[in-house]
Deep mutational scan, measured.
Amino acid sequence: KKKIKIYIENENGEKKTIEIEVEGDIDEIAKELAKKYNVKIVKIEP
């Protein structure tokens, strides 16, 4: 498992940072999160 930080922006332009532990393809997981929460991924840090 890797701990990563995902910087997101919602439709109101509010920026947030999510810190999660992931296993597998980080890009795939980030895309799923973006779709699920309707946010834009700004940056992903390993």
Rank of each mutant, 00 (worst) to 15 (best):
K1D: 02
K2R: 14
K2V: 15
K3D: 01
K3H: 11
K3Y: 12
K3R: 15
I4T: 03
I4Y: 15
I4C: 08
I4W: 15
K5G: 01
K5Y: 07
K5A: 05
I6E: 00
I6G: 00
I6T: 00
I6M: 06
Y7A: 02
Y7E: 07
Y7I: 09
Y7K: 03
Y7T: 15
I8Y: 15
I8M: 14
I8Q: 00
I8W: 14
I8E: 00
E9H: 02
E9G: 01
E9S: 04
N10Q: 12
N10S: 13
N10A: 13
N10W: 15
N10K: 13
E11Y: 10
E11D: 10
E11A: 13
E11H: 11
E11L: 12
E11N: 10
G13Y: 04
G13I: 00
E14T: 08
K15Q: 14
K15S: 14
K16L: 15
K16M: 15
K16D: 10
T17P: 02
T17M: 12
T17C: 08
T17K: 05
I18R: 01
I18M: 11
I18G: 00
E19A: 05
E19M: 08
E19F: 09
I20T: 03
I20W: 06
I20S: 01
I20D: 00
I20F: 08
I20N: 00
I20G: 01
I20M: 14
E21S: 08
E21L: 09
V22P: 03
E23Y: 13
E23V: 12
E23D: 12
G24T: 03
D25W: 04
D25Y: 04
D25K: 03
D25E: 07
I26T: 04
I26L: 10
I26F: 10
I26H: 04
I26P: 10
I26Q: 03
D27V: 09
D27A: 10
D27I: 10
D27C: 15
E28P: 03
E28D: 09
E28I: 08
E28L: 12
A30L: 15
A30K: 04
A30T: 08
K31C: 08
K31L: 12
E32H: 09
L33Q: 00
L33E: 00
A34G: 06
A34M: 07
A34V: 06
A34S: 10
K35I: 08
K35V: 05
K35P: 14
Y37L: 15
Y37A: 15
Y37K: 07
Y37C: 15
Y37F: 10
N38Q: 07
N38H: 12
N38F: 05
V39F: 14
V39S: 13
K40N: 09
K40G: 05
I41T: 02
I41A: 02
I41L: 04
I41W: 03
V42T: 06
V42L: 12
V42H: 03
V42C: 10
K43V: 08
K43M: 10
K43Y: 11
K43W: 14
K43C: 10
I44K: 01
I44Y: 05
I44M: 06
I44D: 01
E45Q: 06
E45K: 02
E45V: 12
E45S: 06
E45R: 03
E45C: 13
P46M: 15
P46L: 15
